[in-house]
Structures are given as structure tokens and as C-alpha cells.
Design a protein around this nucleic acid. Structure first.
Lengths: 143, 143
DNA sequence: ATTAACTTGAAATCCGTTTTCATTTGGATG
DNA sequence: CATCCAAATGAAAACGGATTTCAAGTTAAT
């Protein structure tokens, strides 16, 4: 999903919910899309403050939650106690490889694993809504 | 790993580290093993307080961390913001199915998935240290 | 322009986790 | 057994990220 589409989707969402479009929301969405992925509220807030010093942490926090509600972002937790957000691609799911040394995060996707997950769930009488697969290890350059 | 072995392992750990065996640690380990798995500090604390009212939350917290350090327990996060601990079986790894409706947690294991994870990691130049696979969905009885 | 509803940002609050510190206890030693 | 010191305890405080409060500001419909 390109930036324009994402922005359109958010506009539609705001209209739908009777939310107002504000300068802050625009700036936050822009920066969020520019940065890409796996950013924490704190990080995004600090970045924004460079260019837009008067912006408040609470607003960044609330806006990221809005993004998630709207479906253009997803909240993630990688075990460091901070929530992180990533732009969602909607049509394509992916999992993560996380380097425990340098913190690098790589995305991957494997349909074979997904299929096996479905199978396992079925065997236990579950229907999967979502899943989380994270591989923690050491990346090439850290070895 | 049976209870006796687990207790022995903890005793050895304490000896090794010069830690003292106390009434509290015994009581906490007993209750932890009795309950089994996926218990939060808060839950364990409340349970213990019924039989041992003078026990402190901090002690439960610290003791659970000790268990994890010793290797007889593992800390987990299932996204409800609370850390949970489970007795570790050492020789066998497992993943989790979590019912988003009733909160039931089922353990499973699938060597085929594990193998594919290794393969994916290798493709990206990673060596896996540990992983986390959680399937969130709806269990049979909740449907 | 007026107005009602929504938004903002600073500060306060929440809530699980972790630490502090005065006191108690374990267990090694004489 | 008495003594001693390091470790452990528990109540309370501190911590840290997430969330809420509230007075002031903004949006956009009329």
C-alpha cells in the first residue's frame, strides 16, 4: 500500500468516525510513513519534536493508536517493554527476525510455515485470528 | 522434569550461588510447581497469601526471577501486559495457542515448523538463539 | 461569526515491575 | 551454644511506559 493510499484510507476513517483532520495528525502520519516501521512512540515523538517542537507526546501516542484502529498501522511488542508500530501492508503478513546484539529487525514471510500453523490450530480445535512469530538470534554482521 | 528433580536443580543452583534456602522460597517453589504454568506474579502472590499471609509480593517477584535465572522457569509475555512464568521442561520446547475469548492457553510443538524457522533464519544470515510463536484465535468451546 | 464537538499538550494518574532500606534470618564459625 | 556477617525479607517508595484528565485551543458545520 503506497503512501497516498494509506493517507486516503486514514482520511476516510476520520470522516467515517467524525474525527477532525488537524495539522498534528498530518505531520505525525507523514513522519510515521517516512520512517517506515518498528518505531516506538517515544522515538517518533522525539523525531517529530525536532521539526515541530510544540507537539505533545500524548498526541503522538493517541494518533498512533488511531492509526492502529484505522488499520494503517499495527502495534508490536518485541520484549523490550516498549510498544512499536509498523505500517501495515494489509495484503501481506510478515514475521520478524530480531538480532539480539544490534537490534536489527528483518521482516520475512513463509507460506509453508503459515500453512503448518493453520494445521496445528485445526488439530487443537482453534481457529486462528492472528499470530506472532519472532526469531531472536544473531545477524551476520554481528558474528 | 519431575518436581523432585526441579527442586534438586534449584537447591544446587542456590548452593552454587551462595544463596540461602528459606521457608519462603520453599513455599513459593511448591506452589509454583503445583499450579503448573502460565501464572503471573500477582496470581501466584494472591494464591500464596491464602496459606501464608505474611508473604510479600517483592519476595514472590524476586523468587520467580530466581527460578528463571536457575532455568527451572521461563518468563513469557502474551500481550496482556503481565509477565507470566511457566515451569520449563528443559529438553522440550513448545509454542502456544491462546484463546482470545476465554484466555485458555494450549501448548504445542511442531518439528516441521521449527525446521522451517531454521531454514528461514539461515537464508537471512541469522543464527537463531530462541524464538516465539504464538497463535491467537478462538478455541472450540468458545465457538 | 457563532457554536458545539473534537483536539491538543502539560501534567497527573495508572499499573505492573523493580528497588530501597531497615529489620530479620540462615548458616558458618569459634 | 553464642556470635557474626552476608543474604533475604517485606513494606513502601521509585520507576517507566501507557493512558487519562482538564483547561484552553481548533475545526468545520450552520
Amino acid at each position: 500500500m503506497g503512501r497516498t493510499q494509506t493517507k486516503d484510507k486514514f482520511k476516510e476513517f476520520m470522516l467515517d468516525k467524525g474525527l477532525k483532520s488537524t495539522r498534528q495528525r498530518e505531520v505525525i502520519l507523514d513522519e510515521f510513513l517516512r520512517v517506515g516501521s518498528h518505531i516506538s512512540t517515544e522515538e517518533l515523538y522525539l523525531r517529530l519534536r525536532r521539526k515541530t517542537p510544540q507537539i505533545g507526546y500524548a498526541t503522538v501516542h493517541r494518533t498512533l493508536k488511531l492509526f492502529a484502529e484505522c488499520g494503517i498501522a499495527e502495534q508490536r511488542h518485541f520484549g523490550d517493554g516498549q510498544a512499536r508500530y509498523e505500517a501495515s501492508d494489509l495484503d501481506e503478513h510478515h514475521d520478524h527476525l530480531i538480532c539480539v546484539t544490534c537490534g536489527k529487525i528483518v521482516e520475512f514471510e513463509d507460506p509453508r510455515i503459515e500453512r503448518l500453523q493453520e494445521e496445528v490450530a485445526r488439530q487443537h480445535g482453534f481457529s486462528i485470528e492472528r499470530h506472532r512469530l519472532e526469531l531472536y538470534g544473531c545477524c551476520e554482521s554481528c558474528r
